[in-house]
Amino acid sequence: MALLDYFLRKKEKQVTTASKAKERLQIIVAHERNSRNKQPDYLPQLTADILNVLRKYVQVSDKSLSINLDNKGGELNVLELNIELQDENNPD
């Protein structure tokens, strides 16, 4: 039986625990890096909502609105909205 185990073990080795570890780490580390660098999930939806509200009153293109969330260190977060309005007399 020991001989059989020996050969069976050789086959099983194709997926080693080290390669499992690497795969799991690559996924979790990539995920955590994204959430570190990335803006919060709600920003795209917030952008779309604000654009819709703006469009009730003025003409704006999708690109005319930019939103940034900045961490100024510690407790202070600054949400920055930048809206570019088109020239009403000369819309392009």
Binding site: K13, T16, A18, A21, K22
Partner: peptide, 17 residues
């Protein structure tokens, strides 16, 4: 242990970090 597939290799850790 790296050769036996039981431990992350230097290259693995370099790849990830």
């Amino acid at each position: 242990r790296v050769e036996e597939g039981e431990m992350l290799s230097v290259e693995d850790v370099e790849d990830i970090l």
